[in-house]
Simulated assay, not measured.
Amino acid sequence: MGAISVLNIVLRLAVWFLLTADFSLPNIIIGIAIAFLLPGNRKSSSTLKDWLRILWEIILAIPQAYLEAIEIIFRPHNDEDFIRKRVKPERSLGLVFLDIFLITFTPKTIVTKYDEEGWYEIHRVKRKVSNK
């Protein structure tokens, strides 16, 4: 079992515990069983470098999320739009999940659609630019 497989199992367990919020022994056993029984993604290969990069981006997003929340409180964002962002090539499903988590983690953006052709549709709020 490689490092990437271990990261995929850890991600599955983390999602399981976030969904159930139960750390009892039976729930831990069920979570481990589900993490191992879910089919893997064989079509794309991710590297440890990709995983470390996205985890670092998530760490950096934490202070950004706080700053955006404070900015929205004191300077309301009255405008919104949708943008499309290209998914990085050959992303595993675990990395796509983490990409979506990263985009949605900050208060100004949320992924509304993941296109199987390789695009994220992102809704974002922004300050209205005044034309004086």
Rank of each mutant, 00 (worst) to 15 (best):
F97P: 01
E116W: 04
D50H: 14
S5P: 02
A21R: 15
S92L: 05
E117V: 13
N8M: 07
T109H: 02
E68F: 11
I30T: 05
E80R: 13
I122F: 01
Y114P: 02
R84E: 15
E80G: 08
H123F: 00
I4F: 05
F105D: 03
I34V: 06
V96W: 01
L38V: 13
F17Y: 12
W56S: 12
F82W: 00
F105S: 03
R127Y: 05
F23I: 15
E68S: 11
A21I: 09
A14V: 05
A14S: 10
D115S: 12
P63N: 08
K88V: 09
P39N: 07
Q64G: 03
K113T: 09
R86H: 11
P107Q: 04
G2I: 04
E116K: 15
W16H: 14
N8C: 06
V15I: 15
N78M: 07
L37P: 02
D22S: 13
I110N: 04
R91K: 13
L93H: 11
S92H: 08
N41I: 06
L25H: 05
Y120P: 03
W56Q: 13
N41G: 13
E71P: 01
R127T: 09
W51K: 00
P39A: 07
N41L: 09
W56A: 13
G118I: 14
S46L: 04
V15S: 04
L55G: 06
I70R: 14
P76R: 02
S24Q: 07
K132V: 09
K85F: 10
D79F: 09
F105W: 02
K126T: 11
I73G: 05
D79E: 14
S45Q: 12
T104W: 02
A65S: 15
V10N: 00
Y66C: 15
G94M: 03
R84F: 13
R124H: 08
K88D: 14
E116Y: 07
G31E: 00
E117S: 12
D79I: 05
T109E: 03
F17S: 06
K85D: 10
E117R: 15
G31D: 00
K126M: 06
R86S: 12
K113R: 15
H77N: 11
S45G: 04
R91C: 12
L55Q: 01
I29D: 05
S130C: 06
K85S: 14
H77C: 10
D81W: 01
G2V: 03
T106I: 14
S5Y: 05
R12K: 04
L25P: 03
L19P: 02
S44P: 03
I110R: 01
E80W: 05
I70D: 03
I122A: 01
A21D: 11
